[in-house]
Design a protein around this nucleic acid. Sequence first.
DNA 1: AACTAACTTCCACAATGCGAAATAACGTGG
DNA 2: CCACGTTATTTCGCATTGTGGAAGTTAGTT
Lengths: 253, 253
Amino acid sequence: MAERAAGSGVQSVERAFELLELITAAGGEVMLSELAASTDLPLPTIHRLLRTLMAKGYIRQLANRRYALGPGLIRLGTAASTQLGALAGAQLRSLVDQLGETANMAVLDADMALYIAQAPSKHSMRMFTEVGRRAHTHATGVGKAILAQLGDDAVRAIMARTGMPRPTTMSIGTVDDLLADLARIRERGYSIDDGEQEIGVRCFAMAVPDAPTPTAISVSGPVSRVDDAFAERAIPVLRAAAHSISSDLNPVA
Amino acid sequence: MAERAAGSGVQSVERAFELLELITAAGGEVMLSELAASTDLPLPTIHRLLRTLMAKGYIRQLANRRYALGPGLIRLGTAASTQLGALAGAQLRSLVDQLGETANMAVLDADMALYIAQAPSKHSMRMFTEVGRRAHTHATGVGKAILAQLGDDAVRAIMARTGMPRPTTMSIGTVDDLLADLARIRERGYSIDDGEQEIGVRCFAMAVPDAPTPTAISVSGPVSRVDDAFAERAIPVLRAAAHSISSDLNPVA
DNA sequence: AACTAACTTCCACAATGCGAAATAACGTGG
DNA sequence: CCACGTTATTTCGCATTGTGGAAGTTAGTT
């Protein structure tokens, strides 16, 4: 095999995670020989790695001999999600302090926007999105900010897989309309959800630059408060928060 | 080192996951030397494994040189959660078909009950718990069924970490009351949430035997429908579903 | 029952991962 | 600002671990 550079990784660990990613990409369930075809690794090598993952519950073998992701990954995943949420918590609370409306952070996960952190506003009537909830990307501010970081082909593929349900009459319903909106978002530097997820609620969202996974933050509230004047105040503050989170995610200068 | 048995795992992969679990257990953030103390592995070995995990985003290094879980684990975790949810889906739908009330499945995750699957009933008024939502274990049927699988010391430790908020006046508020209820649950073989999470809602839940992580399923609805007669019908059906899911999770005879 | 496909185990071999030693970087107190 | 202790990172010789071809086993299909 190619000589491995000093300072590079541990091959077996890389291979193990490659298998986990392949199983995830395949919908969570595969045959060993499918993994062999995807990786060019020999069957005994794959088997040994899977056996290691099975022993600790990261992989399960189904009755039909196929391999599936195991529950051991759930706690790692939610711990990671909590960690990232905690990292952003201070920035989101600062957004709420400055703008007075609820702030959220979401990541792209399995083609959906996964909310991983929230700082609620003090208003009695406020947006409440549960951490852990997943929403369609095309119908949310954070979702569109996330999609705007991807290429059109990737966006088309995601829409093909998830469909484009319309929570409200304001929701975008076609891929072409979505791509046009994403172009505007890229030009403007932020996304707007104008009653697309919920009538009467407006949301401004922005991508977190250089996040290890597509990530966005947002502020949202009723249109009576989240108006154009609010937008003028919010955009610079949102941008600063996004960059601050980006710096926290990427501490190397 | 001890000679490794034939058919055992890949040491490097085991070590890598051990480190991930230790970081998770430590709250998601550690120093390299803390990992060394916990594992007795030499620093260069730990460093090489962490470097491998960092390269693919499963680990991040913070500005303070500590190591944290990375976003790469989130998609593995949610994919695993979805997989398990899909596995139970058929059984939960069968429960709904037979009993007419909403069925849920949850796993213990970071001291909370994480809902990973649901089959809603056809009633207009029905329980709706979002998949991905986490609830306190002491105040839900699935949570108490999960806790009943643990020892009293483990339960005390969890309650110490999470606290015991009382969503309703019916909620259990002390560890002693909880332990007493858990003893009854173990004896009876199922748990009951009688308005503890939400007034007017009753829930029957049962542990899934031999699940790789503490897991429980439940049926729930308004007390007007979920009465004692319902319980008599529900308990055997719930038990059968729990065992069926257990068999699906553990295909080896 | 026979055949085929897929999975699992064995084992000789050498490449990878190991870990002691050395070096580098960071934080703190004077 | 500097010295020092602590923590992290890199190097490299070595041998243990992981590799993968061959063979054996199991499950599904005809």
